[in-house]
Design a protein around this nucleic acid. Structure first.
Length: 219
DNA sequence: GAGGAGATCGTCT
DNA sequence: GACGATCTCCTCT
């Protein structure tokens, strides 16, 4: 385990927002470099934050598993837009999944956020997930907050109506990505979860040994 | 702890 | 009309 400790509010506010250029690259590089970065949500005057510990790259027209593989539609239009924007979609009648667009306009590539380690506003996130945390929550209970694409979206209140197409590189946004200087140790690459096409490609990335990675524990 | 199946609805064909 | 980048509950071991 190399899970990072919770953050102070001043540390959160001091973390620089990731610039547009960060996302104007190929999603494999971005997926690797997003590990350890912070997803921050402003709710009224409060902040929620989670550290990215697991994500997946989707390679647009070169990737049969990607939503953009068959071309631009009303649903996936954000992926084909400028980099650094939120692509949120609804799946299985129950869940929202949260992605960020990558590459210049027209490519349809992106990164899916699969798991976060809660580091600020944990109680509010647990409330959003309808979880009850005891006074000294065990890691297994904290893990239920945001270890999975649907779970992290619920914890952060991310929906298609509210957040699709939102600019994640703007400090004026209520949802953005930031770098507080944390650097993960070893990164593992595995096949993506839940995909049936191009299922063998190692495009899922996670911080090795981190207890907040989704699915069965590994590393 | 592991495995299976149901829930539930937007999107595309 | 079929399917899906998931989660949770239930059963069995």
């Amino acid at each position: 385990m190399n899970d990072s400790a919770s953050l102070t509010l001043s540390a959160l506010r001091a973390a620089p927002v990731l610039p547009r250029e960060f996302f104007n690259r190929d999603p494999v590089t971005i997926a690797r470099e997003l590990l350890g970065k912070l997803l921050i949500r402003r709710v009224g005057r409060k902040l929620l934050a989670g550290r990215v510990v697991e994500d997946e790259a989707y390679l647009g027209a070169n990737d049969p598993a990607a939503h953009a593989y068959t071309g631009r539609t009303a649903r996936n239009a954000v992926l084909f837009g400028p980099p650094g924007h939120a692509y949120v979609y609804f799946i299985y009648g129950n869940h929202y999944c949260f992605n960020v667009s990558c590459m210049p306009e027209g490519y349809g590539e992106g990164v899916l956020f699969r798991a976060l380690e809660p580091v600020f506003g944990v109680e509010q996130m647990a409330l959003a997930r309808d979880l009850e945390l005891p006074d000294s929550p065990h890691a297994n209970q904290l893990r239920l907050i945001s270890s999975g694409p649907g779970r992290l979206s619920e914890a952060f209140g991310i929906t298609r109506m509210r957040d699709n197409a939102k600019d994640l590189t703007s400090a004026k946004s209520d949802l953005w990505l930031a770098d507080d200087g944390f650097r993960p140790g070893r990164i593992v690459a595995t096949p993506r979860i839940g995909v049936t096409k191009a299922a063998e490609r190692p495009l899922r990335f996670a911080i090795a040994g981190n207890g907040f990675v989704s699915g069965r524990r590994e590393g």
